[in-house]
Structure formats: structure tokens, C-alpha cells
Design a protein around this nucleic acid. Structure first.
Lengths: 217, 217
DNA sequence: TAGATTGTTAATCGATTAACAATC
DNA sequence: TAGATTGTTAATCGATTAACAATC
């Protein structure tokens, strides 16, 4: 409890939070390779960051290591998992069941981490009724009832940008806590408790072209 | 030329570069709405950033505005497009034609920006031969020849992480300049001229769960 | 105990914001 | 010309790195 309190006191910067999943990934790989302990120095060399940064980042959340020894891989992996909220289960719907929505629905890995896809929705009559991973694509008209009855925590928005703002606000009103937004737009949600995480693929590709353009023959 | 020189002198920070596509998006929307001019102040209010930051960011690349007037929307849009390399054409292949690869292949928007999908590849015999947007999925064995003959600039990696490191290095050897990597791994390419842009979807979802977890009932 | 390595404070570096002279 | 707004320098803020005492 007091630890939790501490967390809420000194606001963790987004820079730190965005590095946590990468630590988690490296620790998972070490775990798979039966590595028992690792020092910040060795991890920093593998990850190409400074040992200082690793220690600073972790100490935002508590002291997970031991002087003279380093960090126990299994313990640290599990602790970072908890920090990231991966010990919980999230009920998810996918809003927009086109190619990208279906691709995400098929990502088995998400389910492993506790993200459970409860429903898929679309407006397109040709998609409605189709099953993806055993889940039927439903008419978006049924979404309000579905969200309210199935305790949906997160909605994945894989739909055209025109439809995103209205639906995002509706979903927030219906009690959804997080939006994973793939539409190329900045959502303004009236309910300011709702968390939005954006994946702007087009923007990612543009930063690539920025760096590639001078290499072209 | 001297402008170009200037650019190469003072290294532009990645923070700036990652903001450019967002400016580009907002300017594109203004353009669609026939807005002719905009001041850094008004743009800053719409985008929820400081006017100072906008002016600083832009002045890394030159003076695109005019005192007392602001910025001409069409001109600035076009200039940022050039900075991002969007006036060029990039030949692309998609390596791994599962759900995500096919979803990206179907993204019409990329083609609009000059990213032209030339080929799709996979190891799975059940996928080979299928057409996506009129492009046949080929056996990955044919990829080397294809890359060398078709002047491929960018490869999209939508394949399992086990296969990514070897193929990434092969592609670099065959002359590919950029890798848009969706595999959950940090690629180490021997040829250090090759640019890697990562889209780690699982990590994005984890930063969402980090922020959502305390909101759960 | 001696050596290793953390947790944490202090120093540095870089990015953001503020201010304002230049100028359209 | 007067008002508006840029481009740019200076000030502030925050994030990263270095250093080291604490301690396993």
C-alpha cells in the first residue's frame, strides 16, 4: 500500500514507462535461457543502454536488486510484469474488423499476456457473421449492449478516422477504460479518465522514410 | 545545397523527427478545409503543444514562415512532406504474409504517399500463390533474386522473431535500405547503413495496460 | 573479509519553453 | 505606419549519466 502510495506521489515519466516493456522482453529471454541473475551492467551491455539508466528506472518502483549480486531474473521479470499490469486480465473488443482488426485478433501472444478478445465488431454486412479465432464478428449496433454486459476494459480501434471520434466517446461513456487507437487521428475524449494509446503506423513509416531518403541511389 | 549541408551539420534530434508526421497530418487536414494560412500560435492550440516548440522544430529545417503572417498551409505541408521524403517513391516488399502482412499490404494510404508494394513473401505453401491486392505471395526462396532485380528500398518484416535476424541481415546484404520491423526483437544489422524502424505492438499494449490497470474495478 | 554491485545523490546534458528583437 | 508573428537567443526544466557510499 505505502509502495503504491509512493508510486502515485512521484509521477513516473512516460520515458521510463515506455522502456519497461523492453526490459520485460529482455528478462523474458534471459529467463528462457535459464539465466538466474544479472547485473545492471551486463543487462545494459546487452540492451545498449547505460547501467545507470536501468537502475534509475527500476528504482522508480522499488529496490529489486541486491548489492554485490545484481538482480534475480525471475523475480525482476515478475515484478516488471506486475508494474505493467500483466498479472491482470483485460477484456477486449476490436472495433473495426477489417484486415488490421482481424490481424490483431489473431495475435495469440496478446491472449498469453491476459488480453482476452471478447468481441469483434464492424458495420460491413459482408463481415458480420464471419468467425475469427472462434469469435463472431457482430454488427456495431449491438456494441453498446455488448460492452455494458461483458465488462469490457479495452477497445481496439481499427476503423476509419471519420468514425473514430464518435465511437471513442461512446465507448468511454459505456465504461471502457482504455482505447488502443490505430486510426490516424488524435482522439479527444470528454471523459478524461479514459486512457488512449496511439499506434500511428503511417507516422512510423514516415520517420523511416525520413531516414532512408538520403540513402536512395 | 547549403541548406542540405546545414541539415547534416546540426544533427536533428529524434524527438523533433517524430513530431514531423503529426504536423504533416494537421496541415493536411487544414489543407482539406481550405485553410490558407496559420500561425504557430493557432496551430499550437489545435495540436496541444507550445507555439515555441513548433517554431523551434520547423527552424531546424529552415524558415518556412513570414513575420506578421504566419505559415502558408500548402507550402508548409509540402515542405514537411519533402523533409520526410514523401516526394520520393519507395519500392517495398512485405516479408511474412500472414494476417499482419496482408493487412499492411491492403493499406491503400501507403501507396498514396509513395510507398509501392512490389512483392509479398512467405514460407507457408498454403499462402504462396494467393493474391493480395493483385500481388501474388511468393516463396521466400525467390526473395534474393526479386530484391536484387526490383530495386527494393524497404522491407516490412511481419514474421516470427526467430526468422527475423537472419533475414534482416540478408536483406541488408541484398541492398535494402530500410527495415520496418514488426517482429518483437531488436535487430542487430551488420551493415550499419541500414535503417531500422520498429513497431512493437506488444510493447504499446503494455504501456496501455500500465495506465489502465489502476482504473479496473 | 574483500569484491561486487546496488540504490541514490550530484553533475551534466539535452530538450522545452519563454522572451524579444527583427521584419513582414 | 501599427500590429502581428516569425526566427532565434536565453532561461528553465527534465532526463540521463556519473559518482560513490551503503551493503550484500
Amino acid at each position: 500500500m505505502s509502495d503504491n502510495h509512493k508510486q502515485e506521489m512521484k509521477k513516473i515519466s512516460t520515458a521510463v514507462i515506455k522502456r519497461l516493456p523492453r526490459y520485460y522482453r529482455y528478462l523474458g529471454e534471459l529467463l528462457e535461457n535459464d539465466v538466474v541473475r544479472i547485473s545492471s551492467k551486463e543487462l545494459s551491455q546487452r540492451m545498449n543502454v547505460t547501467a545507470s539508466q536501468i537502475r534509475q528506472d527500476l528504482n522508480n518502483f522499488g529496490g529489486f536488486g541486491q548489492q554485490g549480486y545484481g538482480y534475480n531474473v525471475e523475480f525482476l521479470y515478475s515484478e516488471i510484469g506486475k508494474i505493467l499490469g500483466l498479472e491482470k486480465t483485460y477484456n477486449i473488443i476490436i472495433v473495426g474488423s477489417g484486415n488490421l482488426g482481424q490481424a490483431l485478433a489473431n495475435y495469440i501472444d496478446f491472449e498469453k499476456r491476459g488480453f482476452v478478445i471478447k468481441g469483434l465488431f464492424d458495420v460491413n454486412p459482408r463481415l458480420i457473421g464471419i468467425q475469427v479465432r472462434g469469435i463472431e464478428i457482430r454488427d456495431i449496433d449491438q456494441m453498446e449492449e455488448f460492452v455494458k454486459n461483458n465488462h469490457i476494459d479495452i477497445a481496439v480501434l481499427t476503423l476509419p478516422k471519420q468514425k473514430a471520434p464518435k465511437l471513442a466517446n461512446d465507448l468511454a461513456d459505456w465504461g471502457v477504460k482504455g482505447l488502443w487507437n490505430f486510426a490516424p487521428i488524435d482522439l479527444q475524449i470528454k471523459n478524461d479518465k479514459v486512457i488512449v494509446e496511439n499506434v500511428h503506423l503511417a507516422e512510423s513509416l514516415m520517420t523511416l522514410s525520413y531516414r532512408v531518403k538520403d540513402q536512395l541511389e
